[in-house]
Nucleic acid binder design. Structure first.
Lengths: 188, 188, 188, 188
DNA sequence: ACTGGCGGGACGTCCCGTTGAT
DNA sequence: ATCAACGGGACGTCCCGCCAGT
């Protein structure tokens, strides 16, 4: 095939990404064999690796999509909003998230790159909380850094729970508890 | 063949397990090749597979050790005590536990087996909290189930954070915050 | 499509051939990937395969160029003149000719085709030597066939040496020796 | 299978080497696919790469065998004796020889390693010729270095010819000519 | 005339687990 | 109980050539 219009190409790329997400979520990075990627994308090795230099690049592209999404939600609605969104997400998204965490451990290059994204999200959350303190909605007896760390802990824990497939009936109540914990007027 | 006394045999098994833990922590499940396990254990392929049917069994045996340890700590000191213990553990191994999470999603057999361990820990935590409520140290405006879910979320989130290698200076403050959140007289 | 004038087309073909020669010389036949040929020719996959059915054809076309050149040199100046020319050629390409030797062993079709070219060179050399005998400059105690075989052996040996990159300071002296060996009045 | 006696292992290794020689001779280094090596050796990938770290090592082991053989023949009987031996050799031997020459070009590491062997053979040939000069059987009007270069050229040329499968009826006569060329009393 | 997306098939490597031999 | 020789499969990569499209 010849030079295709840019949007067609982008669509093709997106298709492959979506299918790869499913595969990575189901089997993990190592477990998602190229053969499996072929099956899931419906395209050949040649096609896949025409669009991405290798499996790693495919994975990183997915991780970046996720990070960007999360960053936007956090920036718009804060970390708790991001938590409330988690259960409604494509379970594949969570699985890939899990894979990211796993790879952070063993791949220092990836870790360095990833840290920038985490930092961006953290900063964004801090700004929101500081603004909340100024507006009198967020408790002021603790530094925002501590509150953000707390929220990130809960966020990641929730992501793991959902990724592991645990259906949590208490979820709403727990998120309410978390929210109260950071509010100024959190009642008991 | 020189059937060894049962305790020697158990010791051998334990040696292999310990070495395997190191290897898994360093390289992850898939990254810890059998060759690496040989190097780390100082024993040959045959010896390893004599004591464990396959790599997976080795991994699960380790995961079970962990689950048992955690269960004991939770039973003695509660989930928050378990959290305070986490930073002292090998972060590499904490990361490996993420492999468990993925397996939970995709392997129903494993999930059923593992759920029993989680349930045990959950139940134990619930009992402690209920006792706390009776003793007037734990808030009573929320069901213990909600509190336990909350604590488990934080626990898992903390494990992920530590596994990812993020050194968190706020950690103590955050754990204090978590503790206050479940206490009856949590001050602001 | 804009069918180009025949000479433009031939020039394009020649360009590709020249670039391919460079690539083959640098990396050998198998080492010169089509991607590398693209890079070196500055043309796309499609363009290359538009002019040549496959990589093999490209290679053989180059080999035939060489054979023709050599045939002409031999015809004009004899095998020893051809030897004296060898050091000025691209050693890389000389090495690639070793690929021809292997192909000769294992591909009977190719061998039959190639033999014609060798025969032409051999015949031409024989004629020159016979003429030399008639003129009294070439020794007559041995049949020309033997002398030609001798010279071809040295020629090929020299090609291998140069291809292997051995810079031989003795070269001139050796070629003088070879020349004396076939001359009538070869002095000691 | 367990630890085998050393000689059994050596025999196994030798079997693999012999079969690999055939494959390399027929298809060249790159052309001798691992699948082909499996077929020819009658052993599995696992077995082959248990004895040799990779294809390269297998090839180098063969090349070293050849170099050692040649070195011994040259050391005992000189380069011309080595030439006379060439036509009687396993054609595979020659094919591998050809592959060595091809790889000298593109692999500098291999080249450096190989040069030592060539030097050893060259030195050995020089000593023989010097001794011949002292004994009055080798011509003294040319330095031994030149004579050795000459002989090596012919040797390599002959190897290529035979490897290419050219049946040379003149061979004996040519070798006689070569021998006369280096003898003191070479008659015309 | 030329492009490049793509198929699909090996490639060499390596890995896990079996098994016969100590 | 332990060892290592081995089978055999699958891995990610990459390569060549086709052909639909410009």
């Amino acid at each position: 095939m010849p030079r295709l219009p840019a949007d067609t190409l982008a669509a093709r790329r997106a298709e492959i990404l979506a299918a790869a997400r499913t595969a990575f979520a189901k089997f993990g990075f190592e477990g998602a064999t190229v053969r499996e990627l072929e099956r899931e994308t419906g395209r050949s090795r040649g096609a896949i690796f025409h669009h991405f230099p290798d499996k790693e690049a495919l994975f990183l592209a997915l991780a970046e999509q996720d990070a960007a999404n999360t960053a936007e939600v956090v920036s718009n609605g804060g970390l708790i909003a991001a938590m409330r969104r988690l259960p409604n997400l494509d379970p594949g998204w969570l699985g890939v998230n899990l894979e990211v965490a796993r790879r952070l451990r063993t791949d220092p290059t990836f870790r360095a790159d990833w840290q920038r994204r985490i930092d961006a999200i953290t900063r964004s959350a801090q700004q929101r909380l500081a603004a909340g303190q100024a507006a009198g909605t967020v408790r002021e007896d603790l530094p925002v850094a501590t509150l953000v760390t707390f929220l990130r802990l809960v966020y990641d824990g929730l992501a793991v729970h959902l990724a592991a497939g645990a259906p949590d009936p208490d979820l709403e109540a727990v998120l309410d508890l978390v929210e109260q914990t950071v509010r100024k007027d959190g009642q008991r």
